[in-house]
Amino acid sequence: MRLTVNGTEHEVDVEPDMPLLWVLRDELNITGPKYGCGIAQCGACTVHVDGFAVRSCQLAIGDLQGDVTTIEGLGTPDNLHAVQEAWIEQQVAQCGYCQSGQIMQAADLLAANPTPSDEDIDAVMGGNLCRCGTYPRIRAAVHAAATKLQGA
């Protein structure tokens, strides 16, 4: 089974009903996407498929159609995505476990809606849980990233 992750093509020998998250973490050792709940309730496993945020614990590898982008492919330390820059500037992360999912969802939000209101942010980011309660900083960082992208 072939899949493209962060621009690199991979071949894996797995059952078609293995969730994409398992393929990324256990087969390809791409560990940015996190296992939080495994039942689509926390958002820690969020990745992009053809630019759209999906919960990788829910997508069977046999059903994958499109290129996968994980946090490792969103930006690089030398060339951060605007959302990553804003995350650092706002010092969003506390323990950090949920943050790759948060950032992937936020990047998708801003691609869809360049100037989100607080209500928009809450509606879209509400599926990404943060046990440390960094929500006020997440919201501030999304606004800051929106401003950066508007100026880009």
Binding site: V54, R55, Q58, A60, D63, V124
Partner: peptide
């Protein structure tokens, strides 16, 4: 917001 398809996959 979040497309239903983010979790209710289809393929």
């Amino acid at each position: 917001y979040i497309p239903c398809q983010a979790c209710h996959t289809t393929m």
